[in-house]
């Protein structure tokens, strides 16, 4: 997080619109990958993904003023992004427009590797098979969050998070074996 973002968030009296916009743009730029990962996980189709992406940015902007610096900015972002994903209306499935992570995520980077992308596709395919609660939990786990932080974002107790995650691991294992 840049110093600019921190200074605007901490200073509640800062009403300079330009500065607020700059801070917000900076925040989104730094976290566009995070939003992308959530939208890819919660949608099946390209248009749907684009809509959700915009919805998340819009919700983050709407609540940007109300963000309090006492909670971690990443916790706030995960919470808003995941909650937005939960409350959207799904578009009807259409043919030929499904989100494939190749051509979308990594092709533009210098390190493009087809095998790596194939394996990523597999990860997404397994995660997408989980239900909405499991999806949120596994996403946060893959993001490297500790049980306490997952509990803070989800509202479940850390023990409950642990139990559910071990169940999800089992489920994923079975899915993978089946394949």
């Amino acid at each position: 997080m840049t110093k600019l973002v921190v200074s605007v968030l901490i200073s509640r009296n800062n009403k300079n619109k330009m500065q607020k916009e700059e801070a917000f743009v900076e925040l989104i730029k730094q976290n566009e990958g995070l939003i992308f990962k959530i939208t890819t996980m919660y949608t099946d189709h390209y248009d749907d993904q684009q809509d959700l992406y915009q919805d998340i940015v819009y919700q983050l902007w709407k609540s940007f003023d109300s963000f309090r610096s006492e909670s971690k900015i990443s916790t706030w972002m995960y919470r808003i992004a995941l909650n937005t994903a939960l409350t959207r209306i799904r578009k009807k499935k259409r043919f030929g427009n499904s989100v494939s992570i190749d051509q979308v995520i990594l092709k533009q980077t210098e390190n493009y590797n087809q095998e790596f992308e194939e394996r990523l596709k597999l990860v997404y395919a397994h995660v997408r098979k989980l239900n909405v609660v499991e999806k949120g939990l596994i996403f946060l786990l893959l993001e490297g969050k500790k049980y306490e932080e997952i509990a803070e974002i989800t509202g479940l107790s850390p023990t409950n998070v642990g139990t559910k995650i071990s169940r999800i691991k089992q489920k994923l294992k079975q899915q993978i074996v089946k394949k």
């Binding site: 743009v25 989104i28 566009e32 980077t109 390190n111 790596f116 993001e143």
Partner: peptide, 29 residues
């Protein structure tokens, strides 16, 4: 594929996504 392998892949993907900036200031606003 084990969960640890998934985690490692996810982390690699996150790193690559961080390098790939697509959004412009105008688009975000």
């Amino acid at each position: 594929m084990e969960i640890e392998e998934m985690k490692a892949l996810w982390s690699d993907m996150s790193n690559q996504l961080d390098q790939q900036k697509k959004l412009t200031n105008d688009i975000i606003m």
